[in-house]
Amino acid sequence: MSAPDTEPSLGGLLRHMRVAVAAFAALLVGLGAIVVLGVVAPSSASSVIMLVLLAAMVATVLLFSMEVPQEPPLTRFFSGLGFAWVAILVGMTLLDYFTR
């Protein structure tokens, strides 16, 4: 236990946030890629690539911004649970629409 640190400079703060800054940059790159693929230069494969990019961005936020890997195992399990359930909801409903 040390005494409260004196307030650092902005650079000092950012030095403690290397992971967050990298995640931030990655998210902006992902956003840029989605805009390019979807708006600027759409192609037939765009949708699939965009969904993959979206999944990567979601993973980035969960892993680095929300620090899921540092959580206890049950919390980690919990954070994945929601997405699994969304997959069930969407997947099984669309199954109906595709087999009509």
């Binding site: 409260p4 640190d5 946030m17 902006l28």
Partner: peptide
């Protein structure tokens, strides 16, 4: 929409800043 996405991504960074500062006791930051 894209601009707004960028705005929120920035706000996520500042929020992480607040969390980091709070862990170190840097109240002003």
């Amino acid at each position: 929409g894209a601009a707004n996405t960028a705005v929120l991504i920035c706000s996520s960074l500042t929020m992480t800043g607040a969390i980091t500062a709070s862990r170190h006791g840097w109240r002003r930051w």
